[in-house]
Design a protein around this nucleic acid. Structure first.
Lengths: 143, 143
DNA sequence: TTCGGTGCAAAAGATTTGCATATGT
DNA sequence: ACATATGCAAATCTTTTGCACCGAA
């Protein structure tokens, strides 16, 4: 079975918190991992429904919240207002194409250190950040 | 009367677009400017209601949209999911305190040029960006 | 007089909650 | 058996829309 690492992480989390290991949770985790990040609750719901038409919206929402708490997923709000989930991994930022919706990840040490300097100037303790560039990707730009 | 510059900008915009200059628009603009940025629709609605209890939610929403189009306001979505409006001015980014809600603005040339470099690497045309650091401000941090 | 504007109520879209039932442990 | 999960429907919350009436030009 695929995604062994994540499934075990979930199992561990459930056990430690006295929660139950249900097939819904497993199905949703799998669908989420297969989607490879940046999915909306609705996309997830649709994809889960294809094979398991009895699973409800509620369970998708509750499970995604659980996966976030377990450190397997991360919630993200881009400018369109819809919540998306992505697989939790090394911190990075995003290029978002406002035409085709493509999301490209990037990561930049030099920006991060500048950020730290700015925060320090304000005596601000930074816990997380978001940095998104919106525009048109190579395929969508006109020029 | 205060906020002469903005009121005139609005008047000009309305005229140029064949829209009407109503007292609601004036009242909402004033409330928005007095709030000094980063207000939610609801805060605006409440504050407008104090002096003008007949103004509806709808008008607040429609007017804020109008002010954005006129270039007087700017819409912003922070991580709490609620839309906030701020007074449109020189581009800048934000430090957001997740304890007291304070929002500090900052601006950084060196980050912006790095951004441009990254975008260029992806042949991406950047139209706008957001960059927010979430954490605890000087007054709210524990250490 | 004529359009655009306003306010209400209803709709819409995303997410959450109450509750009876089902199911891991 | 017992406590937690699930799925439905209903509730919430924010924002938008339809529509009859109002008011600025």
């Amino acid at each position: 079975m695929a995604h062994e690492v994540e499934r075990e992480a979930l199992a561990r989390y459930l056990e430690q918190h006295n929660l139950k290991h249900t097939k819904q949770r497993d199905i949703i985790l799998t669908a989420f991992l297969e989607a490879k990040g940046h999915v909306t609750s609705d996309q997830l719901y649709q994809s889960v429904r294809e094979t398991n038409p009895t699973i409800g919206y509620t369970t998708v929402y509750r499970t995604m919240k659980l996966l976030c708490e377990a450190g397997l997923a991360e919630e993200h709000q881009f400018d369109d207002g819809v919540t998306r989930y992505e697989i939790e991994h090394e911190h990075h930022d995003h290029l978002v194409c406002t035409r085709c919706g493509k999301i490209i990840e990037f990561e930049c040490r030099s920006i991060e250190s500048t950020q730290d300097r700015i925060a320090a100037e304000h005596e601000f303790l930074v816990l997380r950040h978001r940095h998104e560039l919106y525009g048109h990707c190579r395929e969508c730009r006109d020029d």
